[in-house]
Amino acid sequence: MLGPVGVLTRYLEKAMAQARYDLLGPGRFVAELPELGLRVEAPHLEATREALREALEAWLLETLRSGLLPPGLEGNEDPVRTRFFALAQEMWRLLKEGAQAPSSEAPKPLEPPKPRKALSLEEWLKALGIQVVKKPQEEEEKEKVLTRLALFLGDRYPSLEKLYERLKQSLSTKRQFELSLSEATQEEIANSTQFCTMLKQYAFLTSYHYKNEERRIRAKASTEGFVQNFLTGGWLERYVAERLRKFLRSKNLPHEVAVGYQVTLPGGEAMELDVLVRVGERFFWFEAKTGDFQAHIAKYAGLKKVLGLTARESFLVLLGMDKARAKELSALHGLTVVNQANFIEVFQEVLEGHAA
Rank of each mutant, 00 (worst) to 15 (best):
residue 277 V to H: 05
residue 267 G to K: 14
residue 262 Q to L: 13
residue 262 Q to Y: 10
residue 262 Q to D: 15
residue 249 R to W: 06
residue 263 V to P: 01
residue 233 G to V: 07
residue 246 K to P: 00
residue 239 Y to F: 15
residue 259 V to A: 02
residue 271 M to S: 07
residue 241 A to Y: 07
residue 250 S to N: 05
residue 228 Q to C: 10
residue 272 E to H: 12
residue 250 S to L: 05
residue 260 G to Y: 11
residue 269 E to M: 10
residue 228 Q to S: 14
residue 234 G to A: 04
residue 265 L to F: 06
residue 227 V to D: 09
residue 273 L to M: 04
residue 252 N to M: 10
residue 261 Y to P: 02
residue 272 E to S: 09
residue 255 H to N: 13
residue 263 V to I: 10
residue 278 R to S: 04
residue 262 Q to H: 15
residue 247 F to E: 14
residue 272 E to Y: 08
residue 250 S to D: 04
residue 252 N to R: 15
residue 235 W to M: 02
residue 244 L to V: 12
residue 263 V to W: 01
residue 228 Q to P: 00
residue 241 A to Q: 09
residue 263 V to D: 01
residue 233 G to I: 08
residue 237 E to W: 07
residue 250 S to Q: 01
residue 252 N to I: 10
residue 236 L to K: 00
residue 232 T to L: 14
residue 263 V to Y: 00
residue 233 G to L: 11
residue 258 A to L: 09
residue 253 L to R: 06
residue 265 L to Q: 07
residue 247 F to G: 00
residue 255 H to M: 05
residue 258 A to Y: 00
residue 276 L to R: 06
residue 246 K to G: 13
residue 265 L to G: 05
residue 256 E to V: 05
residue 265 L to P: 01
residue 262 Q to T: 14
residue 266 P to L: 05
residue 236 L to T: 01
residue 235 W to S: 01
residue 261 Y to H: 05
residue 237 E to S: 14
residue 267 G to Q: 14
residue 228 Q to F: 03
residue 231 L to I: 11
residue 254 P to E: 09
residue 236 L to W: 03
residue 256 E to H: 03
residue 237 E to M: 09
residue 233 G to P: 10
residue 243 R to H: 12
residue 278 R to M: 02
residue 255 H to F: 15
residue 249 R to V: 10
residue 229 N to M: 09
residue 264 T to C: 08
residue 268 G to F: 13
residue 268 G to V: 13
residue 256 E to L: 02
residue 266 P to H: 12
residue 245 R to E: 15
residue 241 A to F: 08
residue 254 P to N: 05
residue 228 Q to D: 05
residue 263 V to F: 00
residue 233 G to H: 11
residue 268 G to S: 13
residue 226 F to G: 00
residue 265 L to D: 09
residue 233 G to K: 10
residue 232 T to I: 11
residue 231 L to G: 03
residue 277 V to D: 06
residue 241 A to H: 06
residue 260 G to M: 09
residue 255 H to K: 08
residue 265 L to W: 08
residue 264 T to D: 01
residue 264 T to H: 05
residue 240 V to S: 04
residue 258 A to C: 04
residue 263 V to S: 01
residue 237 E to R: 08
residue 249 R to C: 06
residue 247 F to N: 11
residue 238 R to M: 03
residue 230 F to E: 01
residue 227 V to R: 06
residue 229 N to E: 15
residue 272 E to R: 15
residue 226 F to K: 12
residue 273 L to R: 00
residue 227 V to E: 09
residue 228 Q to K: 13
residue 255 H to Y: 14
residue 275 V to C: 11
residue 276 L to Y: 02
residue 240 V to Q: 02
residue 272 E to V: 13
residue 237 E to H: 11
residue 233 G to D: 12
residue 249 R to I: 05
residue 238 R to Y: 04
residue 277 V to M: 06
residue 227 V to Q: 09
residue 246 K to S: 14
residue 231 L to W: 04
residue 238 R to N: 01
residue 270 A to V: 07
residue 226 F to E: 15
residue 246 K to F: 08
